[in-house]
Simulated scan of single mutants.
Amino acid sequence: MIPFVKDITFEYGACDQVSPLIRRVVANNPGPFTFLGTGTYIIGKGQVAVIDPGPDLDDHLEAILAATAGETITDILITHHHADHSPLAGPLKARTGARIHGCPPSRIGAADGVVVEADEDESFRPEIVIRGGEIIRGPGWTLEAVATPGHTLNHICFALHEENALFSGDHIMGWST
């Protein structure tokens, strides 16, 4: 039996300091695929990156903006284009001017009407297309894109070099296989 750790202490709308360079805000979208809610991660201090802004929920957008008050969000990084990870990227960009990075959705099978991705964010279009091995930098932080197709065809993880941490999106989930 795999000993899944399901205990997590948080409050919706609050920002938790996870490590010196990582903060987390959990979206209020609990469910069978999101567990207690989508984790949005803020990387750095001063000039920051946001990984997976989450679902298009006004209260979650305001929570991210409150968590980064007095700072500049320079980059928005998307692990994949599911409805619980990427839809808030556009509204967050509109409020901050940050650049949206990600791997564009694949349209395999789209010509014959077959949908290969469940619950996808059909409007997701990154303005900066990234591939595995590419680097996104800010003051005091370095994120490397790690191509991990599987959960979705366009899935990308992000490795934070300074803390030897990996942001896996839904590629690895702590409560299921």
Rank of each mutant, 00 (worst) to 15 (best):
M1I: 14
P3F: 06
V5E: 09
K6I: 13
K6F: 09
D7N: 12
I8K: 15
T9P: 00
F10E: 06
A14W: 06
D16S: 10
Q17H: 03
S19I: 06
P20T: 07
L21R: 04
I22H: 05
R23F: 02
R23Q: 04
R24K: 12
R24I: 06
R24F: 04
R24E: 09
V25Q: 06
V25I: 14
V25N: 03
V26A: 02
V26H: 02
A27M: 11
A27G: 09
N28C: 10
P32C: 02
P32K: 06
P32F: 05
T34K: 10
L36S: 12
G37R: 08
T38N: 15
T40Q: 04
G44C: 04
G44L: 05
G44V: 05
G46N: 11
Q47E: 14
Q47W: 01
V48L: 05
V48D: 01
V50E: 08
I51H: 02
I51G: 01
G54T: 11
P55M: 05
L57Y: 12
D58C: 03
D58E: 14
D59N: 10
L61F: 09
E62P: 00
A63V: 03
L65N: 02
A66Y: 01
A66K: 10
A69G: 02
A69R: 14
T72H: 03
D75K: 08
D75I: 04
I78A: 04
T79D: 08
H81F: 11
A83H: 12
H85Y: 06
H85P: 00
H85K: 12
H85D: 08
H85A: 10
S86C: 13
S86G: 14
P87V: 15
L88Q: 07
L88C: 09
A89H: 07
A89F: 07
G90A: 14
P91T: 09
P91R: 02
P91E: 03
P91N: 07
A94M: 10
T96A: 09
A98K: 10
A98F: 05
R99P: 01
R99V: 14
S106G: 13
G109T: 12
A110M: 05
D112E: 04
D112K: 09
V114I: 14
V114T: 14
V115A: 13
V116D: 00
V116T: 10
V116Q: 12
E117K: 08
A118N: 10
D119G: 08
D119A: 13
D119Q: 13
D121M: 12
D121P: 11
S123A: 15
P126R: 10
V129Q: 11
V129P: 03
G132M: 08
G133W: 05
I135S: 00
G138A: 04
L143S: 04
L143G: 02
L143D: 06
E144W: 02
E144P: 00
A147D: 15
T148I: 10
T148F: 10
P149Q: 09
L153H: 08
L153E: 10
N154L: 07
N154V: 05
H155F: 03
H155S: 13
F158E: 06
F158A: 02
L160P: 03
H161N: 07
H161P: 02
E162H: 03
E163F: 01
N164V: 02
S168K: 07
G169S: 07
D170A: 04
D170Q: 04
I172F: 08
M173I: 06
